[in-house]
């Protein structure tokens, strides 16, 4: 069954305190080279038949992400 992946992250201008907390923990663990962390969500959708790109984009932009504060990236299967 075709698999569609949707990644959702907060827009760059919206502060991400969870990402900040992860970044601070990394600093305490000595990983000084990591300069930024943004935390997001990763959805994996198993879709029957040939995925309808327009329908999936609508699902991603109207339910999986809140376009007021989040950016969304849709990954359709190759071919």
């Amino acid at each position: 069954m075709p698999r569609v992946v949707v990644d959702v992250v907060l827009k760059p201008e919206i502060s991400d305190p969870q990402g900040q907390a992860v970044l601070q923990a990394l600093g305490r663990l000595g990983h000084d080279g990591v300069r930024g962390v943004r935390q997001g969500k990763h959805f994996v959708l198993d879709v029957e038949g040939t995925p309808d790109a327009a329908e999936l984009r609508q699902i991603a932009e109207t339910l999986l992400a809140n376009p007021v504060i989040e950016d969304v990236e849709l990954h359709l299967p190759e071919g």
Binding site: L10, S15, P17, N66, V68, I69
Partner: peptide, 17 residues
């Protein structure tokens, strides 16, 4: 109400967590 589109903006994780 914000998620429904009746009100503008959004509510997210408190800054201090």
């Amino acid at each position: 109400l914000c998620e429904s589109g009746l009100l503008p903006g959004a509510l997210t994780r408190n800054a201090h967590l």
